[in-house]
């Protein structure tokens, strides 16, 4: 049996400690060890972007990282953004602009967009398309997502 590693990290502001195998992916750790199943796994090879979470504020592919690499760091997942009764402005904008259909890729888009909109409060359409170019969506054709980001930027500037 592989020697277990004592992992401590912060997820959505809460500290966690778990004994884990060093090879456990961060995505699997979040989903199956912590039960935070909002982070979705679409390709397991770093292309689709569904599993994107924020590591110390930067978007990373949680399927391409081992959980142990997050040792001592802060992770933010979709569960840490807003709640059903109190949506984050980006979530609210996705709702209003119909920026999601099946919703599977959505958590990855949201986590990608949080730092983007913080750094670019008034992005152009082209900048938005570049920002989401690493996230695949098969349902929306992206148009409503782009509109959702524009709406979110407006809400966050207000």
């Amino acid at each position: 049996m592989t020697k277990l590693f004592k992992l401590s990290l912060t997820v959505n502001g809460n500290p966690y400690e778990r004994q884990i195998e060093p090879r456990l992916l961060l995505s699997d750790f979040l989903r199956h060890e912590l039960g935070m199943t909002g982070t979705h796994v679409g390709c397991e090879h770093g292309v689709c972007g569904a599993c994107t979470v924020l590591l110390n504020g930067d978007p990373v592919r949680s399927c391409l990282m081992f959980a142990v690499q997050a040792h001592g760091h802060e992770v933010l997942t979709v569960e840490g953004l807003g709640t059903i009764d109190d949506l984050h402005p980006i979530q609210q904008a996705f709702w209003e602009a119909h920026g999601l259909q099946c919703g599977f890729c959505t958590p990855g888009f949201l986590t990608t967009l949080v730092p983007f909109l913080e750094e670019n409060p008034d992005p152009s359409e082209e900048e938005i398309r570049v920002a989401i170019s690493g996230n695949l969506c098969r349902c929306t054709g992206y148009q409503h997502i782009v509109e959702a980001v524009q709406l979110a930027a407006e809400k966050m500037r207000a």
């Binding site: 989903r31 909002g38 979709v78 059903i84 949506l87 979530q91 996705f94 709702w95 919703g103 958590p107």
Partner: peptide
């Protein structure tokens, strides 16, 4: 706007996995 979205947007919707 859709009834199902708040759950999907907050990671609270149940998928098979």
């Amino acid at each position: 706007k859709r009834n199902e979205d708040p759950r999907l947007l907050t990671g609270q919707a149940l998928f098979v996995d």
